[in-house]
């Protein structure tokens, strides 16, 4: 399996060398990274080329790298402080400030492809250039199944897909504001809903519950399993 992937990797690299940012085989999966402007060209190649033959798009997934590698509990020191993050705010301007501290590309779009003809998979990854207004080209024309997956990524992450025929929200409520899967969107949400007896209608109010973390997020230095996975390759 791995050898076949290696071959596929070299084939793609030979054919599209300048368009591929990076390619990597890990855990028996091939990931190639492209710039957003090359996405359409690379995608078309992957679908139409006989060796690749990725006729089916399995998944489009947005990823927000805002808090990547952040842990809530310091394992190197000896502090027993509970590192719960409570500094969230309903005020949008404050949220944006923490945004600005982030350097690098925040949003990525990950596409999983499957070739039924050749029985292999590939992962296509592209990072959006602008963190404030992430845009990538839509691949709906190449694989029609991308339609809803891109709508989902737009809904949950606010990633815009250029050329999408119908970029509406899909999973969240009618009239929802914000993009809930962004890392700066609190897990408990922004608003809560109840029926108001006096107004005789459903009203939205800021959430009244406190965010809490039961198990802190911990990143351990000793990655005892990473060695095992490297041997497998």
């Amino acid at each position: 399996m791995s050898e076949a992937l290696q071959k596929l990797d070299t084939h793609i690299a030979d054919s599209l060398s300048s368009k591929i940012q990076e390619s990597k085989i890990a855990l028996n999966e091939l990931t190639i990274e492209v710039l957003p402007e090359n996405l359409i060209e690379v995608s078309t190649f992957l679908r139409d080329d006989a060796v690749c033959g990725f006729e089916q798009l399995m998944d489009v997934c947005g990823v927000d790298y805002l808090t990547y590698g952040e842990s809530e509990w310091d394992t190197s020191g000896s502090s027993f402080a509970r590192g719960v993050k409570r500094e969230f705010s309903f005020d949008e301007s404050e949220v944006n400030e923490s945004d600005k501290e982030f350097e690098g590309k925040r949003f990525a779009v990950v596409i999983h492809l499957l070739s039924i003809k050749n029985n292999h998979r590939i992962r296509l990854k592209t990072y959006c250039e602008d963190n404030e207004f992430p845009v990538v080209d839509s691949v709906t024309e190449i694989w029609n199944s991308a339609n809803w997956f891109e709508r989902e990524a737009f809904d949950l992450f606010g990633i815009m897909f250029n050329g999408h025929p119908d970029l509406r929200r899909i999973l969240t409520d009618y009239g929802f504001s914000g993009h809930p899967f962004r890392k700066d969107f609190p897990l408990i949400g922004q608003v809560e809903m109840r029926y108001d007896e006096e107004q005789k209608r459903v009203v939205y109010e800021p959430v009244s519950i406190e965010p809490r973390i039961l198990v802190p997020r911990i990143i351990r230095d000793d990655q005892r399993f990473s060695a095992a996975t490297e041997v497998e390759e």
Binding site: T31, C61, Y68, G69, I218, R220, Q223, S226
Partner: peptide, 28 residues
């Protein structure tokens, strides 16, 4: 803690392909 990296695993679910894509930064 999972090692840093990403993986996609798919199975033949009764309805079709059910896949899980996990991105890990080495946390629990």
């Amino acid at each position: 803690c999972l090692p840093e990296g990403e993986a996609y695993a798919a199975i033949e679910h009764p309805k079709g392909e059910f896949g899980c894509y996990i991105v890990s930064d080495g946390a629990n």
